[in-house]
């Protein structure tokens, strides 16, 4: 299949990013780029700066050095909610769903930015507001259908098992129809069947919607199977960058992951 997918131009260019918190250098001089329609994995041991990298990409952290160029436009200091406007959506390592709301409402919230009707119509819940609500409901139902979570549509997400919560969170991110989807450990804590399901969803999202995906994952077999290119971070530095095969053969990566023998 990868042969038929057309990897496009550079969508996101990360150039020389550094960020430190007090004395801790979370990222130092990290550069890579993400091309349209590809799946890029960021891997590395715990504390390597993977999540910090995602936080920089979606504007939650402001890198102290370096530039991020998204869709050809260099990014300046921006507020967190602006990333969503530009077409970046993400999921979180520790699930960040709206626990008091149902699955349906959570995914509907993902489409909030696309809903425009003003307060007046919202108060009446009639005419244009109702029409808009129903249109978006139809799109959300497609996502629910795609992720196979029809049965839990009306269940408050706080009551769902972990694996399903991860799936709902993916649904919420997809609802925004992002150009760039950031997934922070989408398969952490899942059993093998759930991982297979999640892999299938990620590949289908990439394939059907053409969404560019940057993901963080610890399961190497998953990473090597589904990603087009891999960035390896260790102690905030870029260790390796390339196709899965190149990365697998890289001596630095083997050292970081397996440790170096001390004679």
């Amino acid at each position: 299949m990868p042969a038929t997918r057309n990897i496009g131009d550079v969508l996101l260019d990360v150039d020389g990013i550094s960020i430190s918190f007090g004395g801790v250098k979370a990222l130092s001089d990290v550069s890579f780029d993400v091309r349209e329609h590809e799946i890029l994995a960021i891997i590395g041991p715990n504390g390597a700066g993977k999540s910090s990298m995602l936080n920089c990409i979606n504007g939650f952290y402001h890198p102290q050095e370096g530039t991020i160029t998204f869709k050809g436009k260099p990014r300046h200091q921006m507020q967190t909610h602006e990333a969503a406007l530009q077409g970046i959506a993400r999921t979180f390592q520790n699930i960040a769903l709206f626990k008091g709301m149902s699955t349906l409402d959570n995914i509907m919230t993902g489409r909030n930015l696309k809903m425009k009707k003003n307060l007046f119509w919202q108060m009446l819940y009639f005419g244009p507001a109702l029409k808009e609500e129903l249109e978006h409901r139809a799109v959300v139902e497609e996502i629910i259908d795609f992720l196979e979570i029809e049965a839990i549509r009306k269940t408050p997400v706080g009551k769902l098992p972990y694996g399903l919560q991860k799936r709902v969170e993916l649904g919420r991110a997809l609802a925004a129809e992002p150009d760039l989807l950031l997934l922070d450990e989408p398969m952490a804590g899942m059993n093998i069947e759930e991982k297979q399901d999640m892999c299938r969803f990620i590949l289908d999202v990439n394939d059907e919607f053409g969404t560019t995906i940057v993901l963080i994952e610890h399961d190497m077999s998953v990473v090597m199977d589904i990603s087009d290119r891999v960035v390896v971070l260790d102690y905030g530095k870029k260790l390796a960058y390339g196709t899965p095969d190149e990365v697998r053969a890289n001596q630095d990566v083997i050292d970081a992951y397996l440790g170096v023998a001390h004679e």
Binding site: N58, F60, T80, H81, A83, A84, L85, A89, R90, F92, A96, L97, F98, K99, G100, M101, D105, M108, T109, G110, N112, L113, R172, A176
Partner: peptide, 18 residues
């Protein structure tokens, strides 16, 4: 929904664009 999103998880709400 945007109110409830802010109530339940304000950071996630902000990242969605609220």
């Amino acid at each position: 929904r945007s109110w409830m999103a802010i109530r339940d998880m304000d950071i996630a709400a902000e990242i969605i664009g609220i």
